[in-house]
Amino acid sequence: MRSFGMALSIIGLLAVGALGCGSQGNIAPVTGTITLDGAPLEGAAVSFQPIASEGELTVSGMGSYGKTDAQGHYSLKLIETDGEGASVGSHRVQVSVAEEQAGDALTTDKVPSRYRGFDSELTFDVPSSGTETANFDLTTKRKR
């Protein structure tokens, strides 16, 4: 019984190692700018989460994050290692800016819900060469 548990532990470590090795070789630098209704979106949390290819059960790499400056510019870092960039491939992109309401402990987000969370309508394909133009022009009103 003890050897069975050890075998499961070794298999688990090998699986985690294989996932890590596969994604590390496919990292590319990603920067861009985010605007909201034409103005730079300062202080926005930006996240890129790889989207699993059709027929795959898991995503193809680790997620990335960044934060916009006063000009709405951001650079991505890998969540697990803080290395620069993002995994090559398709990503779901989430953007959020939490604000505290005056005299209230609740927070609001000036970014519309369609750009936040796991069901964000934003996507981006990270090329193997990287990009400096992962730009998103968000709007508070839907375009018709």
Rank of each mutant, 00 (worst) to 15 (best):
I51V: 14
E56H: 07
V93N: 04
G20Y: 06
Q101K: 11
L78S: 01
S23Y: 02
L8R: 11
V95K: 02
T107A: 11
A45S: 12
A70W: 10
G63R: 02
V126R: 04
V126W: 12
A86Y: 07
A18I: 02
D119I: 06
N26W: 05
F48C: 05
G85Q: 06
L138I: 08
A105G: 04
A102Y: 11
Y115H: 05
T123K: 01
F48S: 02
K141H: 09
N26E: 13
G83H: 10
D104S: 08
A18G: 11
E54R: 07
S90N: 13
T31G: 00
M6C: 10
T133S: 10
G61V: 01
L57Q: 09
A45G: 06
T108C: 00
A45D: 04
R2L: 15
R142Q: 14
S87F: 08
V93A: 06
L8C: 13
T131M: 07
E54F: 10
E100S: 12
P50T: 05
F48I: 02
R142W: 09
A45W: 13
S87R: 13
L36E: 02
P29W: 10
M6H: 13
F4Y: 15
H91N: 06
S53V: 03
K141W: 10
I11M: 10
P127W: 14
G117I: 07
P112T: 09
A7K: 14
L36D: 01
G85A: 06
G38K: 00
D137R: 11
G83D: 14
S113Y: 10
A98F: 13
V111R: 01
P29I: 08
A15H: 01
A44M: 06
R116N: 07
L122G: 03
G55R: 06
G130T: 04
A86E: 04
S113C: 04
S53A: 13
A98S: 12
T107K: 09
A15I: 10
L19Q: 06
G55V: 05
K143H: 10
R92A: 15
V59G: 08
C21D: 08
G5F: 15
P127M: 07
T31Y: 04
G25R: 10
G20T: 02
T140V: 05
A15E: 00
A28C: 01
L138K: 01
A44Y: 09
T139C: 04
G66Y: 11
G43C: 05
D37F: 05
S87Q: 10
T139D: 09
S87H: 09
Y74C: 00
V95Q: 05
E99L: 07
R92F: 14
T31C: 02
E121T: 05
T107Y: 12
G20C: 08
S3E: 15
G38H: 00
T131V: 07
T108D: 07
R142L: 15
R144K: 13
V59K: 03
P50Q: 05
T108R: 05
D125P: 00
I79Q: 04
S129D: 13
G63F: 09
G117P: 03
S53D: 13
Q71R: 07
Q71I: 05
D82V: 01
Q49I: 13
A39Q: 11
T139N: 09
A44G: 00
G5Q: 14
F124G: 02
S96D: 13
T68S: 03
G17M: 01
K77H: 11
D119A: 13
D125G: 03
G66R: 04
D109H: 08
K77P: 00
T108Q: 09
